[in-house]
Design a protein around this nucleic acid. Structure first.
Lengths: 173, 173
DNA sequence: GTTTTAAGTTGCAACTAGAAACTTAAATAG
DNA sequence: CTATTTAAGTTTCTAGTTGCAACTTAAAAC
């Protein structure tokens, strides 16, 4: 059931405005100190408690707690091995797998601004074996958008536009 | 000089393998509890201490500490206003601006898996005013790659391939 | 020149992280 | 079939972190 010492599972203050933004809820699941490192190990094929322990150099109780939280959040699933009933496998769920862009974006930022060199191992396109390019922001039609060609709009405004366009379909396109 | 009560600025254990991966170094800068929320507020135009305070509902001392850390990390810059010498403006640097893909990827994950609805405000393409699409992983040639068509390779292998292709330029594509 | 505002600091109390030793249950060795 | 090892946790205890509330400092407004 996870780590219960001290009183770690207390209510925790929501990160404010949990209502209308996806960021606080994502951070609720992934915002803790080791969560992304555990995820990275999982993406690299690490599945067992002792292997995470060794790969990360994290304390046992913290790993236990983090794994439980990630399982609760539906990011990992916990399964007993059939061949060895002691062993438990932690595997990424679809939800967990879908965190890859976020993890890569962070990692690429770190490479670019802090390390100056590409990380090892390198994530590659399975088709041609070449390293992937940068994580990008795409427009609705698939164009890559530059970071500076962006603007915030309220949902109300966006929805109003969409309604206008539905009425006059040939307006922008 | 920031928050010093209790003894908060102690040495902190590096997140393991800081050497060859950009993720731990990115987390060193952005891995703390409020960092991404502060960044989000900054992207939304919040610039002053008291405004962050109100927007986030964070404690004053924690905000002070987080802002100092983000400034140290080069993600925000601290500037005195000219018209009112009391006021200090915290503004995103290029480095900070470049965290947008990571923040959006997290936010989109939260929207997709936890909220089920798009956040408000919505980030839009400045050219056509339409909401941006999902953050994507791109191949070296710009194709969007599906999460399952990826594979990890060592830098050594990738570099060896690159050398081979340099020798026989017409080999793959 | 007193009050207000902006941006912090300081002093606690409550919480969280981490190292190391302990537990439990399943596998393997003798 | 008992004794040992291995896998995955718990517990204990210390040290470090978070957060509230009250205090400080310096510049602006009244």
């Amino acid at each position: 059931m996870g780590y219960t010492s001290g009183s770690m599972d207390k209510l925790r203050e929501p990160l404010a405005m949990t209502s209308q933004c996806g960021l606080p809820v994502a951070l609720e699941a992934m915002g803790e100190r080791w969560s992304f490192m555990i995820l990275r190990a999982a993406f690299n094929g690490v599945r067992h408690f002792e292997d995470f322990l060794e790969a990360l150099g994290i304390a046992r109780n913290i790993l236990s707690n983090r794994l439980s939280r990630l399982v609760e959040a539906g990011i990992l699933k916990r399964e007993h091995c059939e061949d060895d009933r002691r062993r438990i496998e932690y595997r990424l769920t679809e939800r967990g797998y879908d965190l890859l862009p976020a993890m890569l974006a962070l990692r690429q930022w770190g490479e670019k601004w802090e390390l100056g060199v590409p990380s090892d191992p390198v994530l590659c396109d399975a088709h041609d074996g070449k390293p992937i390019g940068p994580i990008a922001i795409l427009a609705h039609d698939g164009r890559v958008i530059d970071c500076h060609d962006l603007t915030w709009r309220t949902r109300a405004d966006v929805d109003a536009d969409a309604a206008r366009q539905a009425a006059r379909p040939s307006a922008v396109a």
